[in-house]
Amino acid sequence: MMLGKAAWNLAWWAVAIGLGFAGYAIFFIAPRELTMGSIQRIFYFHAATGISAYLCFFLSFLASIGYLASRQPRWDWMAVSTAEVGLAFDTVVLITGPIWAKPVWGTWWVWDARLTLAFIVELLYIAYLLLRRLSTEMDRRGMISAVFGIFAFLDVPLAYFSVRWWRTEHPGPVIAGGPNSGLDPRMWHVFAFTWLALLALMILMIRDRYRLEAMRQTVSEWKAEEELGVEMAEGKEVTQ
């Protein structure tokens, strides 16, 4: 938050231009994939968004631990901001996946390992946000949601292995996946650029969401102070 408002506005513009250029690069610079054709181009956004989503959930996990260790509200704000942005990214993954799957697999959805994992993770973090929304005691909310955030993230590897053993149809990792995997260098560059642009978007979204949470906290403190002031003016006995 050291940067001024103008600098952050500039950053948003830069990300918008970067994402626009990524869109251009995906369609006009990246080569056409041999078997799947143009539909493969969704991969750049799909995979990059997916990686970013899991990164967000990992950050949320770290922030939850940070909150339990320090009891500083800012860790709680960080945990909710990253979880929410991660959920948004995961939703994009769940929407772009079927768009790709329909022409390639011939069906919108299969209960394949990675789809199922993305779906379970989506459920886990919706539950996390619901828990926050329904928690009434503000002091306990941070702690309860931090514990749930930790449990939810610990569940991700278990869910990953269970669905992987259960069934796998999703294309294997093309990046560092094995001797025969790998991307054309031009595809690599486009992918790396798209991912960087999305990463920058992710950081800006987390930052804005974090500020919103901080402002909410300030407002609720003001409200509490005002209520206290009114009660004192009315001469009521103030019990704290």
């Binding site: 379970i120 886990l124 269970s162």
Partner: peptide, 11 residues
Amino acid sequence: LLLPVLAPVLI
């Protein structure tokens, strides 16, 4: 809260 976390157990 419980059922999503239990998905691996169910599978």
